[in-house]
Each structure stands twice: as structure tokens, then as C-alpha cells.
């Protein structure tokens, strides 16, 4: 029984662990302009309502504040309960990640780092150049980058107009899938799926956003 279970599990994992092949397409191949680039282009503050779920069950509803500066590649973020309790506050610069407040479960280094990685994945264009472009077996146009850590990142457009960002491990296992809203503001609605042993999903709905001139910070 256990052997059969392990066999099925292995087959399931194997089916998820291959990087999808990209076929050349006259529409996309060689036309890097066809690659979607939804990422922030100027320093912007976003406030989102965030619904976090594990195993398909909503576990928490939060308010997320993110200040993303693409030029400096710096991030600041805070997570609050609807009642205003701040349970996570951190910033990331080229020097590293600085956590100024972290209540459980964000007090675990891996969780905090994973959260900042997710935010970076959502808001910043990867620094790596596009490796190849084409279409998947599904017909979806996609542009692929080889990440500096050996992994892969696909950015493409879903048939419903949403922009999909998919990050794969070095071995080709899908780790993250981000879907950004179709239309003028891709950050109006964000869905993130994390495919880990303790998989989770984040569903983010924009409350407000604004461009941030430098030094426009409360209390400064």
C-alpha cells in the first residue's frame, strides 16, 4: 500500500517537475517586444487587501503595503491585520534584507525571506536577459529567462489576458505562479501560488497605489 502510494506520488512529482518546452513561433520568436513586461517602472506605493490560503482554505486576511523602487531595486513592505496590528515590516536593498518587525509566523527567517522573494517576483523585472521566446504546447506565448541561481522564469500572457509569471527551480520544478490582472493596471488583482510542501496562495486586491517622490515618507 505504502509502496503504491509512494509510486503514485513519485509519478505526480515527476509530472510537475519538467520545464515546459518552448516551440519557436513566428509571432514571438525574435520579437522581444512581444514579451510582456508588467513590472513597475517608477517608485510606487501599493496598498493591497491580501487573502492568504493554505490547502485551499483562507487562513488570514491582511493589508499589505509595498513600496517598490525599480531604479534602486529596493523594496519596503509591511503587513497589517485589518485592525491595524503590524505583524511584519521589512526592507530589502542591494545589501540585504532588514526585518524591523516580525510576529509569528514571519519571525522565521525562511518565511520572511520567502515573502520578500515573492514580493520581488511580483513587482520587479528580473535583471537577467530573455533567453528564448516562443509558444508552449498550450499555445501560450512565453518569454524565458535563465535566472542567476540556475532556475528559470517564464513570463507570458494567458488566454484570458492575464499576465503569468512562472518561476521554476534549476531542475524544472514549478515553484511559483503569479497571475497579474488583464487590462491597464496589472497590479489591480494579483494571484500567487506557491508550490512547496506547505503550499500557499495569496490573492491580492488593490486598495490604492501612488507614485512616490523621493523623501515623501510620513514622519520624516
Amino acid at each position: 500500500m505504502n509502496v503504491r502510494f509512494l509510486l503514485i506520488l513519485s509519478l505526480l512529482l515527476a509530472s510537475c517537475s519538467s520545464l515546459p518546452e518552448i516551440r519557436p513561433s513566428a509571432d514571438v520568436t525574435g520579437k522581444m517586444s512581444a514579451c510582456p513586461s508588467p513590472f513597475v517602472v517608477q517608485k510606487t506605493r501599493f496598498i493591497h487587501a491580501i487573502e492568504a490560503a493554505m490547502a485551499g482554505e483562507t487562513r488570514a486576511v491582511m493589508i499589505g503595503v509595498t513600496v517598490a523602487d525599480p531604479a534602486a531595486r529596493t523594496l519596503s513592505c509591511a503587513l497589517l491585520s485589518p485592525e491595524g496590528l503590524v505583524f511584519f515590516e521589512a526592507s530589502r536593498t542591494s545589501i540585504g534584507t532588514q526585518i524591523s518587525r516580525a510576529l509569528p509566523p514571519f519571525d522565521k527567517v525562511d518565511v520572511a525571506r520567502g515573502l520578500m522573494d515573492d514580493i520581488e517576483l511580483i513587482f520587479f523585472e528580473p535583471p537577467e536577459a530573455i533567453d528564448r521566446a516562443g509558444v508552449l504546447d498550450t499555445g501560450q506565448a512565453v518569454c524565458r529567462r535563465r535566472l542567476h541561481n540556475g532556475g528559470w522564469l517564464d513570463i507570458g500572457k494567458a488566454p484570458d489576458g492575464r499576465i503569468l509569471i512562472q518561476r521554476y527551480s534549476k531542475g524544472g520544478r514549478l515553484q511559483r505562479c503569479v497571475a497579474l490582472a488583464a487590462g491597464a493596471n496589472p497590479y489591480a488583482a494579483i494571484d500567487l501560488q506557491a508550490f512547496e510542501w506547505t503550499g500557499y496562495s495569496l490573492s491580492m486586491t488593490l486598495i490604492e497605489s501612488e507614485a512616490v517622490p523621493d523623501e515623501k515618507i510620513l514622519g520624516k
Binding site: R45, I47, I63, V65, V67, S76, C77, A78, L80, P82, E83, G84, V86, E89, E210, V212, K216, I217, L218, G219, K220
Partner: peptide, 28 residues
């Protein structure tokens, strides 16, 4: 709610109900 990361306070609104001795409904 005022924080360093915010340019202006984050405003939440809601309703509050209390009945002695200790019943409370705090609704955002």
C-alpha cells in the same frame, strides 16, 4: 494608522457596539 512606510495615514472605518458588562462588537 500612521507608519513610516505610508505617505498619509491608512484610514479604516467601522462601527462599535458595547453592552455592559463586557459584550463588544468591533466591526471594520
Amino acid at each position: 494608522k500612521s507608519m513610516k512606510i505610508l505617505s498619509k495615514p491608512l484610514v479604516s472605518t467601522g462601527k462599535f457596539f458595547y453592552a455592559a458588562p463586557d459584550s463588544i462588537r468591533w466591526e471594520y
